[in-house]
Computed example of a mutant assay.
Amino acid sequence: MPRIRTRTLTTTIGTLVVNVDLSVPLDEEQFADIQAALLKHQVIFFDNPRLTPVQHRDFAA
């Protein structure tokens, strides 16, 4: 799977995560990239995730 990309939203907090399909399980590298983005930017948003309620639950777990 391709690596994620992020787009910083402000100079102090928040980033937009793009280039990731949240409807399928993430590989270890993608998970680590998302975790690093969350730690660095404190708030992350996903670009158009298109998740069913079950997929959303599974991703959150």
Rank of each mutant, 00 (worst) to 15 (best):
F59Y: 12
R7F: 05
L16G: 01
T10I: 11
T12C: 06
I4Y: 00
R7V: 03
G14S: 07
P25I: 12
P49K: 03
P49A: 07
H56S: 15
L26R: 06
L16H: 02
P53E: 08
V20Q: 00
E29T: 10
V24E: 12
N48T: 14
L16C: 08
N19W: 05
D58L: 11
H56K: 15
E29V: 03
I4V: 15
D58S: 09
A61R: 11
I4W: 00
T15W: 00
L39V: 10
Q42E: 15
L39H: 08
V54L: 13
T11R: 13
L9R: 02
V20P: 00
R50H: 09
I34A: 06
H41T: 04
A60P: 01
R7T: 07
E29P: 00
I13D: 06
F46T: 02
R3G: 11
F31P: 00
F46Q: 01
T15S: 15
I13C: 13
V20K: 00
R57D: 15
M1C: 11
G14N: 06
D21H: 08
Q55C: 07
P25E: 10
N48W: 04
H41M: 05
G14K: 01
A36N: 12
Q42W: 13
P25F: 13
N48C: 08
Q35W: 12
G14C: 04
T15Y: 01
R5L: 11
L9K: 08
T12A: 14
R50Q: 10
V43C: 05
R7C: 06
V17T: 02
T6I: 15
R5K: 12
A32P: 03
T8C: 04
S23P: 05
L38H: 10
L51V: 06
T52I: 09
T6Q: 03
A61L: 13
T15V: 14
D33K: 09
F59P: 01
H41C: 10
H41S: 05
Q30E: 13
R57W: 13
F46I: 03
A32T: 14
H41A: 08
N48I: 05
I4L: 09
Q55R: 11
R5G: 02
D47Q: 12
M1I: 04
V54N: 10
R3A: 12
T11M: 12
F46D: 01
T6F: 02
P49M: 03
V43M: 13
T52A: 14
Q55S: 09
T12V: 14
A60R: 15
L26F: 12
A60H: 13
I13W: 08
I44P: 01
Q55T: 11
E28C: 09
L39Q: 15
F46G: 02
K40Y: 14
P53G: 06
F45Y: 12
R50Y: 14
L39P: 00
V43R: 02
N19P: 07
T8L: 04
L51N: 02
